[in-house]
Simulated assay, not measured.
Amino acid sequence: MSATRVCALSDLEQDTALRVEVDGVAIAVVLDASGEVHAIGDTCTHGDISLAEGFVDGDTLECWAHGSAFSLRTGKPLNLPAYEPVPVFEVTIDGDDVLIDPNVKKDI
């Protein structure tokens, strides 16, 4: 499968997560303060909570329910109660299109 357009780059608000779904895979897409776009699994590994409803701080996305923060670069949790990472996906920008293939996880 190839990458799918999930949104326009202009649809993303800086330091705000956007939940998208590609082939049944929920993904949180984030435009960070430095202008880099990240895509991580949208479900907190501590609970069945959408990370896109959480808070972006630098290169982390914090779950609003229990406070676990996940690295946007590695998917690793940076504090408890979560201890399992979320997947991180490759992002391709083509003009104003943000493309993600949920079958291609980023090498960390």
Rank of each mutant, 00 (worst) to 15 (best):
N79H: 11
L61M: 07
F89W: 03
V86E: 04
Q14H: 08
V6H: 02
V86R: 00
L9I: 10
L12R: 04
E53C: 09
F55Q: 09
F55E: 12
V88L: 07
L31D: 05
P81A: 08
A39I: 02
H66R: 07
V56W: 01
D96W: 11
S50Y: 12
L78S: 09
A52G: 07
V29S: 00
L61C: 02
G41Y: 00
E84S: 12
V29G: 04
V25S: 07
W64A: 14
G54W: 01
S2Q: 15
K76L: 15
C63E: 00
F89H: 02
E21I: 11
V6S: 02
R19H: 08
R73L: 11
T92S: 13
G58W: 09
I40H: 00
F89K: 00
I40E: 03
V22D: 03
L9K: 10
A39Q: 00
F70H: 03
C44K: 01
Y83I: 15
V98C: 02
L80K: 13
T4I: 14
D11Q: 12
G24C: 09
P102T: 03
G47H: 12
K106V: 06
T60G: 06
D57A: 14
P87S: 10
L99K: 07
A65P: 02
E13D: 14
D94K: 13
G95T: 06
K76I: 09
D57R: 13
P77T: 05
V30F: 02
D23Q: 13
W64R: 12
C44P: 01
S34D: 14
G47I: 11
G24K: 09
C7W: 00
T74R: 05
L18A: 07
T16G: 08
K105I: 10
T4G: 06
P77N: 10
N103Y: 12
I100F: 04
L51Y: 03
C44D: 06
G35A: 10
P87I: 04
V91A: 01
D94P: 05
L72R: 02
